[in-house]
Design a protein around this nucleic acid. Sequence first.
RNA 1: CGGGGUAUGGCGCAGUCUGGUAGCGCACUCGCUUUGGGAGCGAGUGGUCGUAAGUUCGAAUCUUACUACCCCGACCA
Length: 426
Amino acid sequence: MLWSKIFLPTLKDTPQDAEVISHQLMLRAGMIRKVTSGIYNWLPLGLRVLKKIENIVREEMDASGAQEVLMPMVQPRELWEETQRWKKMGPELLRIQDRHDRDFCLGPTHEEVITDLVRNNVKSYKELPLNLYQIQTKFRDEVRPRYGVMRGREFLMKDSYSFNINQDSLNESYLLIKETYKKIIDRLGLEYKIVKADSGSIGGDASEEFHVLAENGEDTIAVSNSSEFAINSELLLTEGEDINSLEGKPSPDGNGIIEVKKGIEIGHIFQLGKIYAEAMNANVLDNEGKSQTLYMGCYGIGISRLVAAAIEQNHDEKGIVWPEAIAPYEVNIIAIGFEKDDKIKKTALNLYDKLLSMGYEVILDDRNDGFGKKMKDAELIGIPINLIIGKQYTENNEIELRHRDGKSSISMVEDIETIFDHYKSK
RNA sequence: CGGGGUAUGGCGCAGUCUGGUAGCGCACUCGCUUUGGGAGCGAGUGGUCGUAAGUUCGAAUCUUACUACCCCGACCA
């Protein structure tokens, strides 16, 4: 992609209505623009990141044996009456009417729809366990949307639902998803903790949250500094303890010391048990021909929230520092004097084509601007590798290879291909 | 929903107290010169000052109502 062609409106000044760093940087880096409170446009650069995360999630979900479906955003009132949630849910459930005055809602989650689908189409224990997922836009009319896409009203989420014949099978599905989530967040390159959680209004039995650690996190969690132990403050509150009083104490699991940290909840897994299946009469026949109520689990990952969380965890004073796996582009070629210097133009285009053909995602800064502006923008949008073709090239055939995280080296132009061959192979 | 704040060109702001018909920086357009840390000169484009009503000869400025947005709290991927 040529920088002169891409729709990438970067901002020098921080918009006044953005408070947290990820929101500021997403606006400044031209990733998103607000449409109205809690609802955003995704611009090309932001969308690339969103899609990368989405694809990693999809790949790992598929690898776990889950199958992708797509359910409607608009859902009929009748299904929500079956579980009593039409009444129980507050105004965060956005209700609308069609031309016949029939009631609908915009789906904040899909237990009702998926349970309806499964009860109508799955009749035997032989078809279980079944794990279905979708990646879809959700709408929750949040009391107070804030922090950009971190807590939007409209957001992209991967939600999945497992259907099991009994509790043991549910346990297995739950653990499988938990392992899948670990793989996903590891691949994204983010630091996280798994936290025992209150299962909240959705109800059910076991429940754990996945938190990306970040200073601006909305949740306070207590974690061990040398084991997997972690607990959410909400859970402690029900036991009447102040989470900050745990700081420095030995971890209850006997490993390490408790540290109190801030986290962003980007995933949540629940064992729902039989509550939804019972309410909606979702049964299958077991191996003795007897009707059994299904056991269910539900598992969410906030995809759009992950974009913001990744930035909260990976930025510096200059801008975003993308983890390689989710960077919108892998390489940024900065050509100084692109229009004026034929040697630079030729080499930049040549390198651009070469890297593209090697399979790299490349953006070429061919704009008619000076070094300062191009570097500032490059640092802002946080592409992992910047190749600088400028004076040093004109004079000595040298190209600077500058990593966004600080490292920098000088190479001769003819060595670039070898260097990138090496990257690709590792 | 309770408390606080903001609203003037795409972004950041001044002007409001003390009414006189809108200004600065950045961005954008054209030309020339520039190109290793957000370039220079010259010439331009763009705003009925959130909306409505009122006071006044005259309102961005005063009055009233409304709306939107942001922040803090109670809910959540």
